[in-house]
Structure formats: structure tokens, C-alpha cells
Design a binder for these strands. Structure first.
Length: 436
RNA sequence: GCGGCCAUAGCUCAGUUGGUUAGAGCACUAGAUUGUGAUUCUAGGGGUCGCGGGUUCGAAUCCCGUUGGCCGCCCCA
């Protein structure tokens, strides 16, 4: 038993474990590129104050934080949003709008290990800065959907629940709630799905009993499933801000519909997300069948860049986590075998033949073929076994008999058929075989 | 931070009321096999039985503690 192990909550990625993750990253990157997003990266370590400024002092308990040797209070990043706001804020005047950026990176949170949750995990983050209108939401929600569809997940596998904190702000204000009451109520709404009416304790504990009318009004919003439900409720209130907000809803939903994505999106005002900094539309992606955590989440945060010291810059963003995503793909059998298999395995007769084979191996590799061979001299039987197990389709045989005749033998490993070609035509023969 | 379950080889597990040198399958390495791979046979490497303490003539086994893991709660950027 090895005396050193990885730290609690941290994962080793042996090749067979890295492969699925690489698959996720590749598909996410492909989707982001297709949508015209630019990739960026950033330091793993940031000033502790950056996170306190965004989330409050309580956040420190959930961070990997410490004082560095220069006495600076620092933290391993628990999320990308503060960092990307810092970066964009610093160059906001020089960046062409809209700013569409994405990253794939590791994050660290000091918390208890659980299914789909660890102390180090990866996220895909995508954000649009500088666009205040709902077109940014359309672009990001469709990118989110594409990130999951690129992994072969379909509309029956997942969906995106779309909600709106602005709608709640206006609605609760119209019902007579003050700012603080509104925040408590959003906390209750966040828990309503899990706790039912129990969730309103969050509100009543802080602000006293709520009227039957208030509770009925909130639950009525929570019951909304479609845009027309929403239009009905809003029409009854005859409230100018709410009516204006409905226009944004129509634009988002009709935009997504025009992209052919209507079946992936549902109206669900039960999603408010815990963060106080969200200012408008918020959305989360969920597995339709299982009981996994949210696959992804995001929303609009128009005040955050400024709050972190930058200019007033509207922003929308979302993140997808790797752990829950991988659990889902595993459940669905959608993790492909992406082990690195050689195209060609070279079987070598002995030391003399090895020298000759090395020249051809180098030439094949130089033009991009994946070529493997045994590092030590082995019997032919063992070499053919290795060739098969390597996953190569083709074996090249460099034996004494062949080389004496100036030829190399090609063996089709699946058909178990062999043929000889002159040595100088090996590259051509390999190319013909593999492209056939 | 709180609660429940668990911990024996790389993996899945067996191990009798506490009793000799802790086992199997899979995987790995080598041989049978000096020019032909999915089978077969043989051999080998790999364990301070999570760690520490206690009870005992004797502990993988019983007791206490601790660490780690899984699941749930809190939280979830």
C-alpha cells in the first residue's frame, strides 16, 4: 500500500479516467468555437478579497485560502466569474463588443465530498459582456444546449429551466414587499420545490407571518409552466414594468424557438439561484430522468463588473460542471472509448530488423500516423498478441525473411490476411490500407 | 459543521465461536511457443488485513479512538 494518497476530495486521473473528461472538454470547446466565443485562461490563485467582495465574508469558510509567504491573503479560485469580471473590467474600453469568452478550468472548494461534488472539479464557463438585451441570453442558452447535445444528449435527456429574478422583483414589489422581504422570499422560492410550503419558513422566520393572499400569489407564479400562463398572470396585474419585462421573455423564447430549441426550454419560476448578484434571467439545466444535481446554471449579473471595480458593464454567463455531467453520460452509456490506439503496430524480428524498422517507424510518425512497437525483442506470438490488444488495425512485419527480400509484410489484424510490399512503398501501402 | 453505513492484493470479494505461513477470481509479468494474435495450461510478483491503542497465550476477527470512503442533512458561486 502506497503511503501517499491524493488529498481528500481530489481525484487522480489515470488514463481511463482522463479519457471521458477529455471527451467532455473537446465537445465543449467545439461548441464554443462554433458560437464564436474566444478562449481565455487565468490564475488558479487569486486575492481572497476578490471573493469576499463578490460573495461576502462568509464565503471564506468554503475556500482553500491561506496567507502566502508575502503575507497576502489568497484563495484557490472557487469559480471563474470574479476572475473573468476582473479581466474584462480591466480592459473593457479596449475590447470589442459583444465580448464572448469561454474557459475550461479547474476550481477548488473546501467542502464535504458527495456524489457529483468534490474539492477540485472542472467547469466550462461562457460569458457575454456588453450586451444588455435578451439576445445575450438567447446566445448563451443555445450554447449551453449545444454543449450538451454535442455529447449526444437529447431533449428527452435534459432540459433548461428558465426563470427571471427581475420578474420576481417587480411582482413581489407589486405585492407590497420591501427589498429585504423580497430577498427572503427569493430564498424561500429557491427551496419551494424541495420543501413545499415548509419553504416559506425562510420568509416567516425573518419577517413574520405572511398573508394567505401573498402565499397564494407566490404559489401562483411557481405554478406557471408556459409563456401564456405568464401572460395571463401579468395581464391581470396591469403593471407597466411587468408588462415591459414580458417583451424580453417573448424575445428570448421566440429566439430559442427560431433556433429549433423550444423543446429544450421550459418556463419555471422556481429557479432563482442562491446568488444575490443575479439581476435578471437565470437558468439551470437538469437531467430529466435522474435525481442528479443541476448539470449547469447561469444568469445575468449586470452589476458585478462594476462592483468588482470595473466599468458599468452588463453580463450574462453560465457554467457546466464536469462531475455531474460525467455521471449523467455514464448512466446513459454515452462515454465513448477514446483510448489512444495506434494505427499501426510494428512487429520486429530481432536487433538487426529493429534498426531497419526504426527508420520506417520514424517516417510514418512524421507524417502523422500513430505507430507503436515493442520496446524489447519478443517472440512473434507475443508481438501479435500485443498488436491485437493495442487496437491497431494494421501490423507491419519486419522479419529477417522479409528484409532479405527487400519487402515488408502488412497484416490486416481484423481479417487475418497478409500481403507483402516493397520496403520503399510502405508509407503508401499504409496510407492506402488505413484510408480504405 | 451534523448523522447513518463501510474499510482484507491494482479491481471484485471470501476468510468458521478469536487459533499454524491470510485466500480466490479478474488484471499484470514470464514460460509452454526460435515466424503469427481473442482459447488453454504452468509459474511469478503484488498485503505491516486503513492507521493507532486496548483485551488475550494468540486479533483480519472483539473493544475504543482516529483517518479515509460512500450516502443523506446544511451549503451549493
Amino acid at each position: 500500500m502506497a503511503s501517499f494518497k491524493s488529498l481528500p476530495g481530489f481525484r487522480d486521473f489515470y488514463p481511463e479516467e482522463l479519457a471521458p473528461r477529455t471527451h467532455l472538454f473537446r465537445q465543449w470547446r467545439r461548441a464554443a468555437h462554433a458560437y464564436g466565443f474566444q478562449e481565455y485562461d487565468a490564475p488558479v490563485l487569486e486575492s481572497l478579497d476578490l471573493y469576499k467582495a463578490k460573495s461576502g465574508d462568509e464565503i471564506e469558510g468554503q475556500l482553500f485560502s491561506f496567507a502566502d509567504k508575502g503575507g497576502r491573503d489568497v484563495a484557490l479560485r472557487p469559480e471563474m466569474t470574479p476572475t473573468v469580471c476582473r479581466m474584462v473590467g480591466a480592459r473593457a474600453n479596449a475590447l470589442k463588443r459583444p465580448i464572448k469568452w469561454f474557459s475550461i478550468a479547474d476550481f477548488f472548494r473546501y467542502e464535504r465530498m458527495q456524489k457529483g461534488r468534490g474539492r477540485c472539479f472542472a467547469q466550462f464557463n461562457a460569458d457575454i459582456f456588453g450586451e444588455a438585451g435578451p439576445e445575450a441570453e438567447i446566445e448563451l442558452i443555445s450554447l449551453l444546449i449545444q454543449c450538451l447535445r454535442g455529447l449526444d444528449l437529447q431533449a428527452e435527456d435534459f432540459y433548461v429551466r428558465l426563470s427571471d429574478r427581475n420578474l420576481w422583483f417587480f411582482y413581489l414589489a407589486a405585492l407590497g414587499l420591501e427589498e429585504e422581504q423580497t430577498q427572503s422570499m427569493l430564498g424561500a422560492i429557491d427551496k419551494f420545490e424541495r420543501l413545499g410550503e415548509e419553504a416559506f419558513k425562510v420568509y416567516t422566520d425573518a419577517h413574520g407571518a405572511m398573508s394567505a393572499e401573498l402565499q397564494a400569489a407566490v404559489q401562483r407564479m411557481l405554478a406557471i409552466k408556459t409563456l401564456s400562463d405568464l401572460e395571463t398572470v401579468v395581464a391581470e396585474l396591469d403593471h407597466p414594468q411587468l408588462s415591459a419585462r414580458l417583451d424580453d421573455w417573448r424575445r428570448v423564447l421566440s429566439g430559442l424557438e427560431a433556433m429549433g430549441l423550444a423543446e429544450f426550454v421550459s418556463v419555471d419560476l422556481g429557479v432563482v439561484r442562491g446568488l444575490a448578484y443575479y439581476t435578471g434571467f437565470v437558468f439551470e439545466a437538469f437531467d430529466r430522468k435522474g435525481d442528479l444535481r443541476a448539470l449547469a446554471g447561469g444568469g445575468r449579473y449586470d452589476n458585478l463588473v462594476q462592483k468588482l471595480g470595473g466599468p458599468d458593464l452588463p453580463a450574462v454567463g453560465f457554467a457546466i460542471g464536469d462531475m455531474t455531467m460525467e455521471l449523467l453520460l455514464q448512466e446513459r452509456g454515452l462515454l465513448p472509448d477514446v483510448a489512444n490506439k495506434p494505427d499501426v503496430y510494428v512487429v520486429i524480428g530481432g536487433p538487426e530488423e529493429r534498426r531497419v524498422a526504426f527508420g520506417d517507424i520514424a517516417a510514418l510518425r512524421a507524417v502523422g500516423y500513430r505507430v507503436d512497437y515493442p520496446l524489447k525483442d519478443l517472440g512473434f506470438g507475443k508481438q501479435f498478441k500485443n498488436a491485437t490488444e493495442s487496437g491497431a488495425r494494421l501490423a507491419l512485419i519486419y522479419g529477417g525473411d522479409e528484409l532479405a527480400n527487400g519487402v515488408v509484410k502488412l497484416r490486416d489484424l481484423s481479417q487475418r490476411e497478409e500481403f507483402e510490399v516493397p520496403r520503399e512503398q510502405v508509407a503508401l501501402a499504409v496510407s492506402d490500407f488505413l484510408s480504405a
